[in-house]
Design a protein around this nucleic acid. Sequence first.
DNA 1: CGCTTTGATAGTTTTTTCTTATGATAAATA
DNA 2: TATTTATCATAAGAAAAAACTATCAAAGCG
Lengths: 294, 294
Amino acid sequence: MINITLKQLRYFEALARHGHFGRAADACAISQPALSMQIKEMEDVLGATLFERGARQVRLTHFGEVAVERARDILRAADELGDLARASRERLVGRLRIGVIPTIAPYLLPKVMGDLSGRYPELEIHVRETVTPKLIQELRDGKLDTAIVALPISETWLSETPLFDENFVLVRSAGESNLPLPSADSLREMRLLLLEEGHCFRDQALSFCNLQSAPPREVLDASSLSTLVQMVSAGMGVTLIPEMAVPVETRSASVSISRFQSPEPIRTVGMVWRQTSPLAGQLKEIAEVVKMCA
Amino acid sequence: MINITLKQLRYFEALARHGHFGRAADACAISQPALSMQIKEMEDVLGATLFERGARQVRLTHFGEVAVERARDILRAADELGDLARASRERLVGRLRIGVIPTIAPYLLPKVMGDLSGRYPELEIHVRETVTPKLIQELRDGKLDTAIVALPISETWLSETPLFDENFVLVRSAGESNLPLPSADSLREMRLLLLEEGHCFRDQALSFCNLQSAPPREVLDASSLSTLVQMVSAGMGVTLIPEMAVPVETRSASVSISRFQSPEPIRTVGMVWRQTSPLAGQLKEIAEVVKMCA
DNA sequence: CGCTTTGATAGTTTTTTCTTATGATAAATA
DNA sequence: TATTTATCATAAGAAAAAACTATCAAAGCG
């Protein structure tokens, strides 16, 4: 498809402004014949005359007058594309889509969101809270820019950076606080309440109890840590929650919290993103901000 | 002053659309390395990354998404400069891209095409037949000059002019011609065959039966009026078709046609185009020609 | 592991654009 | 009227840009 070029539009606009081939050519920093040829080329392509070449002056035709308006619009839009690029290059601006797993989101996000908004006022943060496999899928599909999950993920196409380590604590009903601390193995014999399938925290808890995937007797699949703690508070069993969740979740429940002796159960929380993401640089920066919060 | 070129914008747009260097290059009729180089050049000039090159897919960055919108605007404006030139040469010549909805096209186009070609011998008419939302999108993208659709469209950036009104008639199998005419409401209880989702005629028919969007029992989604009539002919139910379609569609089907009493179902067919289109003047002229045909 | 897909790179060729030199026309000047 | 001057067009070669072919390298897939 043959078409006009932006260069021709620039020359055209210059000629329209100066009304003189020589001066317009100077303004464009090219020779006069070069300008003449490009204008002629443009007229040929358009199939219409742009200028009425008088002996002593060059004047726009009626069509030329209309066309130069359009040309100026186009040139302005093209220049704005450059401005747009410059604006987006400097600071972290625009939309940032973060995914967070449900066992971290409610405890980490309030502070992180505040800090990020303060630091990057032009950043529009979208948060998606769901389980790890879905987050990874959405990352792969380009629906998310980054995700905060329990490491490791071990996908070759992902970059991962650790943010912080997090202990698991035992939650028992208030009356049991004096009982001796059960060993990891003996948790198997107790009524251990867990999150439903799909949450990585469930697998981590089971792993700590040396259970592969077969659940212990009588598990109850909760959909949130809040539910778990409320169940414990009602005397239905014991559970594990991340230390980070303690302040929020025990506020309205009469339960006792105990830390394990070594080997203390632990998980590493980190941030992941596509290795190919052009935001990689900025995401590292954001990871630092999140580390501060934790 | 170094700057991007329209050619680069075209390549950029193609790559954004195809998400694949090879196919985009094909679409631009150049080799893949040529496209790669121009995209890279463009990214260098802008100083920003436009695409995230994944192992298996190429995806726009956030900035790329914003930029491609601008690029499309610029490209459309540049194309319109050509249209403008054509319009300035008084008579309507060159390419005219008309979109028509499928429930009108086969009945209106044969005559309209003939009349237009006779009247404007230098006019090269391209016809695109698809559903209204796609036509409107293509109009917006500058891929169409005008479209013939059911009014109203109510987009502020469109000019619309009515062409003619069209009644809907009831199609029943041949044996049922003596039965009394069902009311709009009672159509709901019959086995009403309709076009598939997306056709405005489907919505208009449903609306006449006072159905919002929930389809009646056992709808069968056909992709053309011909199919509908053939189904009716086979005794599978009843349907509505525009009056204009009657001569063509009942030629090879043993069905009976009945007009409704008032309130007679009706729709207004009209022509729409971008208000900013330089062809506006000529399009009005064409609308008059189409009116004659109907 | 090989095999395939896919984008990047290198070197060469083709096309486009630009430059200098020159021509042509008409107004201005003498 | 002849000459000069101002201007834009044309021509031919040089420079720059863009495109092609061939090939590489990385990553997914069986």
